[in-house]
Design a protein around this nucleic acid. Structure first.
Lengths: 316, 316
DNA sequence: CTGTTAGCGCTTTCAA
DNA sequence: TTGAAAGCGCTAACAG
């Protein structure tokens, strides 16, 4: 029934009387147009999907809040799915883009190899968020992780750090860039890293503690530690404190993300603020452009500005 | 093309030769069957949706991990969407169930009134998780919040608490039950509450701090505080410590959830462990039953066992 | 302004 | 075992 459809979609070519009658019937029957039929006909869903390994990181939830708000402004629904770091599940979710279950995809922490991401991104609407493949063929939004790590490492050095350690995460793209920034700042200051420790699996409070335990057990004690996340830094601070040493008196500690944990930690953590919410919005806007302008395949990256937040954990 | 469809769906009524040929073509063309067409024809999507206000709570992400794992075992994809506490967005997402975008719905922290939930849940596949409406008409999975709060309050009393305060959250269904449990334990011990404070808006670290500041400013200082979440309890501990008082020496503090923050806090927080992951699994299993067995409309609740976890924050 | 109709891409029944 | 064809519920083009 054409008229019903017209009423549903707010077409102006309907008389007030018909509109009234149809609207009444719709209410009466509690009728909802079937999404699959409409999607099939229109060849779009007005839905997008955002993928991440886990949801328990403050950066993820904040970034996805930005995605969701921007999506809502453009009339899209944004759905979220965790991959649990399992390639099969990630594949299944990426297939939702391929088979038209959603119109666009935002990838936060992919397990896929860079060239697979590239392959999907060149054909369909994909935007990478925070964790961006090295290749410039696909498009991504992030901070300049290398520069940010350089900045905070330089701050540690300026605050008197001479024997620097880093607890990082080579499994993540951003983690590798952060290591580069760390090395860069050290090289520039004529220093060499005292320790470089990397989480094997999880990159969380517990691994922060156990890696710091290693650090403290070594014969070359650092005077400053740069951790790749606030959560890990919180574990690091806790382990140092429990060992009877003081932060920052004996060892200064810096984190990354400026999540609530940077504030909760005692002492408060010096860290890098990522504008996660805005990154999410920008990511959606880029995706929107890609979805709506047929030829638009943006490449490369957009960097959003980060900010060094100095708290007591490095006030030597 | 019937044969193609038969190959895609693994029908046995296909010759090996055809199967080979079709599979080859599918690979060659990188063909994926369009979801909307299949969903329309089959009248189901093999997708479910899980709603929550925010994603930044550890309980939410853990519970949804359970939902996702159980869903994957049954061949379902589980999607997640935050409502931001906005009724319109919640409506739009619930409409995804009504219009067949998904086959089932798990509601974590609804904004909707109980009777609206009831109305949807009696007609369609809905399961409530953690936050369950008072009405028994719909089905939900949770711990026994009232009993759990009774247990931890009783522990505070046994540990020497006489002047008890609570920082709660009347905006949430579980929050109201926790208040009941608190009052119940006090009444049984012949005590009356010293303070009952409630977060207006957010129920987080900052509100924990500011409500505790009120508490400390009053002329009747409590000797024990029960907080409705670990995050709030962490804020409470921090405020007490910053004021120069000791936890638990001067004031004992208890949290709720047994999230990572209970461990990160100094001193470690006594709290109630919710089996969030299992609750998620059980919720999906109930939803699955509802989706697959036509007449199955379960009512009432399933309670999963909670556990009192005692740490230093109450060791008087 | 409104009713009729074709057709989106898939699954499934029916014949062959 | 396979091809042909109907039809899921919707939208959009068309004719009236």
């Amino acid at each position: 029934m054409g008229t019903v459809s017209r009423v549903l979609n707010g077409s102006p070519a309907v008389s007030a009387a018909s509109k009234e009658k149809v609207a009444g019937a719709i209410r009466q029957l509690n009728y909802r147009p079937l999404a699959s039929a409409r999607d099939l006909r229109r060849d779009r869903t007005m839905r997008i999907l955002a993928l991440a390994k886990n949801l328990d990181s403050p950066i993820v939830s904040e970034a996805f809040r930005g995605v969701g708000d921007a999506a809502a402004l453009s009339g899209y629904v944004s759905l979220i799915a965790p991959t649990a770091g399992e390639p099969e599940r990630e594949q299944q979710l990426v297939d939702m883009l391929r088979n038209g279950s959603v119109d666009g995809l935002i990838m936060f922490s992919p397990t896929m190899a860079d060239d697979e991401i590239e392959a999907v991104a060149t054909q369909m609407s994909v935007v990478q968020l925070c964790e961006v493949a090295d290749s410039e063929a696909a498009f991504g939004v992030s901070i300049d992780d290398r520069q940010a790590s350089y900045d905070i490492t330089q701050h540690l050095i300026k605050s008197g750090g001479r024997k620097l350690a880093m607890i990082g995460n080579r499994a993540a793209r951003s983690g590798r860039l952060r290591e580069e920034g760390f090395r860069w700042a050290l090289a520039e200051a004529g220093l060499s890293p005292e320790h470089l420790l990397f989480a094997d699996g999880d990159f969380n409070f517990h691994s922060g503690r156990s890696l710091t335990r290693e650090l403290l057990g070594s014969d070359r004690l650092p005077d400053a530690v740069f951790c790749g996340s606030d959560t890990v830094a919180a574990g690091c601070v806790r382990e140092i404190t429990d060992a009877g040493l003081r932060v920052p008196g004996d060892i200064a500690v810096a984190g990354f993300d400026d999540s609530i944990q940077a504030e909760m930690c005692v002492p408060g953590l010096t860290t890098i603020r990522q504008p996660a919410y805005d990154m999410g919005r920008v990511a959606f806007d880029a995706l929107f452009e890609r979805m709506t302008e047929p030829g638009a395949h943006r490449r490369g990256r957009t960097y959003l500005p980060h900010e060094l937040v100095v708290r007591d954990s490095t006030k030597g």
